[in-house]
Amino acid sequence: MATEAFEEIVEDFEFLEDWEDRYRYVIEQGKAMDPLDDALKVPATKVDGCASQVWLHPSINDGIFSFDGDSDAMIVRGLIAVLRKLYNGLPVTQVLAVDARAEFERLGLNEHLSSQRSNGLRAMIERVRLVAAEN
């Protein structure tokens, strides 16, 4: 159950045969994302379990989930952008139904991320799920 924006990434990945091109694509997604306001880079938005600095700032408006985020690592910033396309715009009641690991497997990202990056990605997904579960 992925959003239309995430499905576009899946389609784009199908045309990118080389993993280096896919890696660059993820980084470009992160570069295209607006930076998170420094005032939101506080301990409450920091994600533990990531090797790099990661902040996620979720919001729920009229039952619709979204989040902004940032990282000091370019590939992680790209992963945040991909996660945003997976979750942003969903009704908060549907966020927990998303199998993010399975969706990322469709991109082949799981097998190309270092163990530290994979742990960080899991931590970001868990933060999203936690916020959704609380609402």
Score class of each variant (00 low, 15 high):
Q29G: 10
A51M: 15
E28D: 15
N119A: 13
M124R: 04
L109K: 00
G78K: 03
N110C: 07
A2G: 00
G49I: 11
S114P: 08
A132F: 06
S115I: 13
K46D: 06
Q53K: 12
E28N: 13
L83Q: 04
I60D: 01
T3W: 07
N135M: 09
L16D: 05
E14K: 14
G108H: 07
M33D: 04
E17P: 02
D18S: 07
L96W: 06
E4L: 07
P35G: 06
L121S: 00
A132R: 04
D72S: 07
P91F: 15
H57A: 15
A97I: 07
E8W: 01
S71D: 11
L90V: 04
F104Q: 02
K31L: 15
G108V: 09
D12Y: 02
L130M: 12
N61A: 14
A44Q: 13
V128P: 00
V54S: 02
L113C: 05
H112L: 11
L96E: 06
G69A: 13
V128S: 02
R101K: 15
F65I: 10
S66I: 03
N110E: 08
S114T: 14
L56M: 05
L16H: 03
L16Y: 00
I64A: 07
I60Y: 01
K46E: 15
I80W: 13
A39T: 14
E103L: 12
S118N: 09
D37T: 11
S52K: 03
K41D: 11
E28G: 09
S66L: 11
A73Y: 08
D70Q: 03
S66P: 01
L109S: 04
C50Y: 10
F15M: 14
